[in-house]
Design a protein around this nucleic acid. Structure first.
Lengths: 221, 221
DNA sequence: AATATAACTATACATTTGTATAGCATATAG
DNA sequence: CTATATGCTATACAAATGTATAGTTATATT
């Protein structure tokens, strides 16, 4: 279903409020801006806008975020080429770019976070991503993942057959294809120079751990 | 009066929260992040930070703003490009995602723009990008650019030897490696199934046109 | 030595805010 | 023509949130 003119007007007011104040409006703020006498009118619009994918929110105060789709609507007619983002709250996930994954875990311990990278949701697929890593080495070149590429990872402790995963082997993060075997698991490179790593699950103990599935690859040329 | 280490830690937590959530934290959010058992500990810090000019706030929920002074403090230790965008300071560009490049041009006509994609500057390298395209076919698989990948392109009408470019051949956009030859140019695929396209520049007329250089590749898995 | 600032704990209260209930009128889709 | 979505008013309540009171300990500062 398409966005209505009224919903678009509300969306624009939300956007403008964020631009001006640096924080999102409440239902009552929107009601006042739109001239509604009840916050319910605003929250009804929020529900519609969220259903149509233009905003996201939770039940906390001032938690509305605009999505990529919203910015697409709001910026129409702007320019042929790219334009800078104004102050706003695009639905970006800020993924922590993990440096060294330290022994002892958790893998996402605060100390390991070098920086945060703003990543548009459309870049991480349906399930999103939880963190990013920079690839070291060319062991996955057969899957077109190269040294220096940035990968985005959905955190998970298990994997399906054939998925490309990030695993922790003796506290070192590696990218490999995951396969189940009779006795355990196999982590396979897509570069013939690197032999597959076979792990008998009984022997492995805590030395091998799946930490997530690769959902996106990004490379600067 | 100078900012204390503890105040700086609180400031960083506020910053990180905004980065991650796109909306500012409450006193209780900060208390939890810092390990305080009372929101008063957090509001005391707010008062100090505001007095010293690092934040501004009002009495509404989630209304903390970071000042430029705060960003000055927080940026220390971050590289120019990797510094994460915050609300109001997003280092993002909205790239038009070009759908079908229509006959008759211009290649970036407004009608061809399907949507805008927010792309962090760190994703497009030092020179940025002007538009994005989705790759059709596997002619560049040898360069690890696959069917369905999204490429980001810096608009240019010329290219250097060996660069990966987007060219318009008879109104169809193709991705190829660019080489100069004696008589004209050569557009080379990195897939042996596709022969190189040699163009004698005198014959070509307007049928071949370089429209830009590929600066980044993105793939969802 | 006295005083102010910093850095908190623990509890309480008032306001802000999300959200629900109940209803009405109009437009749109099947 | 009927059902559904849209677009509101009016009121109320519970949860989230800002902020105050009262106190403790440590560290500067004068």
């Amino acid at each position: 279903m398409k966005i209505t003119d009224r919903q678009k007007a509300v969306l624009k007011k939300i956007h403008d409020f964020i631009i001006i104040n640096s924080y999102p409006p409440t239902a009552r703020d929107v009601a006042e801006m739109m001239g509604f006498s009840s916050p319910k009118a605003a929250t009804d619009h929020f529900t519609s806008l969220e259903k149509k994918g233009y905003i996201r929110k939770n039940s906390l105060a001032r938690s509305i975020k605009l999505t990529d789709k919203a910015f697409g609507i709001l910026k129409q007619g702007y320019s042929y080429f790219s334009f800078p983002a104004a102050a706003g709250h695009a639905a970006l996930s800020y993924l922590p770019l993990i440096g060294n994954i330290a022994a002892g875990n958790p893998a996402l311990a605060y100390e390991n976070i070098d920086e945060y990278i703003p990543v548009p949701e459309s870049f991480t697929g349906a399930y999103g991503a939880d963190f990013a890593l920079r690839v070291k080495g060319n062991s996955m070149i057969g899957d077109h993942i190269l040294n220096g590429d940035m990968i985005m990872v959905k955190a998970r402790s298990t994997a399906e057959n054939g998925e490309i995963v990030v695993a922790l082997i003796n506290d070192e993060a590696v990218v490999k294809r995951f396969y189940k075997t009779e006795n355990g698991i196999e982590l396979v490179s897509s570069n013939p120079d690197y032999p597959p790593i076979r792990i008998n699950i009984k022997d492995a103990g805590d030395s091998v751990k799946i930490i997530g599935r690769v959902v996106a690859v990004h490379r600067n040329i």
